[in-house]
Design a protein around this nucleic acid. Sequence first.
DNA 1: GTCGTTATTATCAAGCTGACAATAATGACT
DNA 2: AGTCATTATTGTCAGCTTGATAATAACGAC
Lengths: 252, 252
Amino acid sequence: MTSDSKSAKEFLESYEPGDYPSIALTADLVVFAVSAGTLNVALVRRGGHPFKGALALPGGFVGPEESAEQAAKRELAEETGLDLGSLPVHIEQLATYTSPERDPRMRVVSVAHLVLLETDGTVLPAIAAGSDAAGAAWHPVHHILRSNDLAFDHLKILQDGLGRLAGKMEYTTLAARLLPDEFTLTQLRTVYDAVWDTTLPAGNFTRKMMPHLKDTGRKARAATGGAPAALFAATDRHIHPPLAKPTTHLTR
Amino acid sequence: MTSDSKSAKEFLESYEPGDYPSIALTADLVVFAVSAGTLNVALVRRGGHPFKGALALPGGFVGPEESAEQAAKRELAEETGLDLGSLPVHIEQLATYTSPERDPRMRVVSVAHLVLLETDGTVLPAIAAGSDAAGAAWHPVHHILRSNDLAFDHLKILQDGLGRLAGKMEYTTLAARLLPDEFTLTQLRTVYDAVWDTTLPAGNFTRKMMPHLKDTGRKARAATGGAPAALFAATDRHIHPPLAKPTTHLTR
DNA sequence: GTCGTTATTATCAAGCTGACAATAATGACT
DNA sequence: AGTCATTATTGTCAGCTTGATAATAACGAC
């Protein structure tokens, strides 16, 4: 029995509307951006039941002729006004949530996506007034994770998204996707601190990270005293050996 | 606009059969087992068009009241005779494939799963005669990856499955899930060699892996000369620092 | 020009790495 | 019983990496 063929054929032959409730496919988004040393997530507030008034991840239905990722980009544009087509933002599939009970009204399968928006570390991207009614707003991630008032299983999705980002930052330069093309090592370290909820020592961070970055030769203007920091650009995709996230996940 | 709520309501209100082609949801399986130092994958041969005669991953439709993982387990039992309910096999979600063109007949979205079956390293699990007509058979992974005759996008799915397994083996004891509860370090090293397509030096492998395993105190009978090897059981989920997969993925 | 601040480099002991050798424990075969 | 080939495990060692911490360098502000 082949997966898509015979099964599909049998399915088509035996299919009668009503036998199977139609499965709705949605694309949900975990959108992260860093500001003032804090990791933030874009959330919308629900206007209708169920979970009326609760916060939820942005997202929407996958159209008949688009992939889940295309739908995610379209929904993000509609709900936040951000155009993923022009901006060089990072988007990757996170996981798919298929529990039959996850939406009390109907069978909804959601393909969650992780999106990283770049900031200079101080100002969050302007989101809100998209073409849709309700606008998205930024919320500190570590605060949201404590006060559990996310709709559906979106808390679990957010946890998974944070876990993916935190984990990948150990062995890739993914953290740079939360910063402009050129950034200082201090900016990058601030991203690590925000996501890992740690305080990495600056000297050792520089020593270990610098070999994986490209020195642009340019310098950032010193904000308020202090030496001007060199501007780097991300090059390698992999960091070897990986950075160790402190305290957590130690082996013994 | 909230993800599942308003959108879902609008969707339901505006939905008319025919407007949207129904989306079929399938669960596909990348099932791995090691034998004679070779990583094998369970594949079925397609009897119908399209891709008639080609090999494909086992899988099938997700029922109206089951999750994708439940469907994956059910399909594996039906297509191979293996009962994932009783056996302590590893199963995890891999990724979801949503390209509208991936199946020429209709819109099929597939949630792929990674399954690891335990073997003693010599005899592959008996699969084949399930309740379905066509049976599954084992194929060497690295051979399949070269000769590209997998149906649909199943080659990509297989590549992703191998990548997930190979990657996770760097920082977890996941490789032990391809072996019985108790195993020798040589057996475990053989798994690494099979998946990574390498030949790790035995001495250093022992030194680095042993701290993450539990010594059962028992010894394996030496097969044909040589000292008897100690039997270990997997304990930690994480290996720190990670094992480095040689040659590949070096930073510079 | 002095001071406070920040970036970057240096230092150092402790631990880890790869490469390789040495020891120990078996079965097979005279 | 003894020798041998084989395998598992432990040891060795120079070179590298680590965390902790300090020293140096390069600014802006006053």
